[in-house]
Amino acid sequence: MTELTAPAAGADAPQASLWKDAFRAMARRPDVLFASLIMLFVFTMAAFPGLFTDKDPTRCIGREARGRPETWFRGEHPLGTDAFGCDFAATIVHGTRPTITLALSVIVLSVLIGMTLGILAGYFGGWIDAVISRALDVFIVIPLMMGAILLLSLFRGRGSSGNLLETVAPAAIALTLFGWMEFCRYARAATIETKNLDYVTAARCLGAKDRRIMFRHVLPNAVVPITAIVPTSLGSVIVVEAALAVLGIGVQPPATSWGVLLSNGTQWAGGGYIYLFGIPLGLLILTVFSFATFGDALRDALDPKLR
């Protein structure tokens, strides 16, 4: 038979697959490693706040209010105190868990709902597509903010016992309900594009069931555009949560979150207390950056041509 000029790959290498190869490709990138470190840091803070501070964020001393962090990272108040005299480092650390829980649950739920509906609509078309697309149209005309405010007003004044679920759940449900549409649209478009390709026809010709085609062939193509919008959505969830906090319908006190800190910090940033605003913002930017890097790398890793 004809000889092939391409040299053979490592002779008896173990069977490769898309996800294994993708993981290996990502582990080799320094920016991914850096992003992973940031994510690890943030997640540890959310999981074990005790590792980072021994102060109680709810113990506030009025006369120590707005103490600038003269001795950065050391001393009594490593990051100073906030407007009410609470230890700022403790506030931030303890605000991480509600923030991350909220942001991740909103994103995960939105992606799951959006992708499932999008792939179903795109793949089956017909009346399924008609129903989902109309629902999409309805939800998309209601801005995220407005929908959330309307919905959360119903929960308002219920108070909170400090239980994480109760603190975060109303905001998470509201934000998910009005946040899945973009994922759905992208997934639907990618599915429609993919389902008419020859390799999908080939799979159907081999007798593959719909479920197999959706998972094996359609899903990886739908994931690609989604990875691109997850990081930005993550950022916007945190920011919207901050806005809701201003209205008193976000994460319920006494729990706090980065969003709450951001909105509080804006009031003092002009008066020389930039750290009250800058530190939560910096954390937010770093987190969004690490997710963006991760998403970007994942997209490249899922495209064998770019590896």
């Binding site: 697959s17 898309l18 190869d21 020859d198 390799y199 799979a203 593959a208 069931k209 193509n221």
Partner: peptide
């Protein structure tokens, strides 16, 4: 277009056996 760009040759040729 007839081969899934995200699958290895082994996966492509082996897919019929999985179905």
């Amino acid at each position: 277009t007839s081969l899934n760009p995200r699958m290895t040759v082994g996966d492509i040729v082996g897919e019929p056996f999985e179905i």
